[in-house]
């Protein structure tokens, strides 16, 4: 009986603290909602044998190398709407897609209307700053990194 009470108390405490933390912290879905401006593109890592001196590349050069095959290439502003829609705004062009967050809140999945799907690893997500990583295999294999700031 004593052990049953001890076990029950321990389990209840674990579950309660787990729920308390979940309730007190905003979910990644809540944090990401709103407008974000693209700040920089860079190579986080690169295949060493490709001999690319990527550290000296500026953001625009990296964007041209990495992003040309990506739909987000032209977007300078990203607006995450609460209904799961994403507005990719680049100059006069606005492209609509669906966004979802997966896993433990570490994957941003973007689905375009033509059925194309892109997955980004959420490396950092706070109220003011967002950093997305993605596998890059255009021209040079590596990990690309996109940084945003909230508008």
């Amino acid at each position: 009986m004593k052990f049953t009470i001890l076990y029950m108390t321990a389990f209840m405490l674990v579950i309660l603290s787990f729920l308390l933390i979940l309730q007190s912290r905003p979910s990644p879905e809540a944090i990401i909602s709103g407008e974000w401006a693209e700040v920089s593109w860079k190579y986080e890592k690169i295949n060493a044998t490709d001999n690319l001196d990527f550290k000296n590349y500026d953001s625009e050069q990296v964007k041209n190398l990495l992003g040309k095959d990506l739909v987000i290439y032209e977007a300078e502003k990203w607006e995450f709407l609460p209904d799961g829609k994403l507005k990719l705004i680049g100059g006069e062009t606005i492209r609509i897609a669906d966004w979802r967050i997966k896993g433990r809140g570490h994957i941003l999945q973007i689905r375009y209307l033509d059925g194309l799907q892109e997955n980004y690893n959420i490396f950092h997500l706070k109220h003011r700053k967002m950093v997305l990583n993605f596998d890059a295999d255009a021209k040079v294999r590596g990990i690309g990194q996109l940084t945003f700031t909230r508008i």
Binding site: S24, R25, P26, K102, R104, G105
Partner: peptide
């Protein structure tokens, strides 16, 4: 769901990395 369900070794590693990063929501989930 982009996450494993049958092996928890990886989850322990992820838990440690989320603790280092201070992502409390993710810490609770993992």
């Amino acid at each position: 769901f982009f996450s494993f369900s049958s092996n928890v070794t990886g989850h322990y590693t992820i838990l440690a990395s989320e603790i280092i990063l201070g992502n409390y929501y993710q810490i609770a989930v993992v």
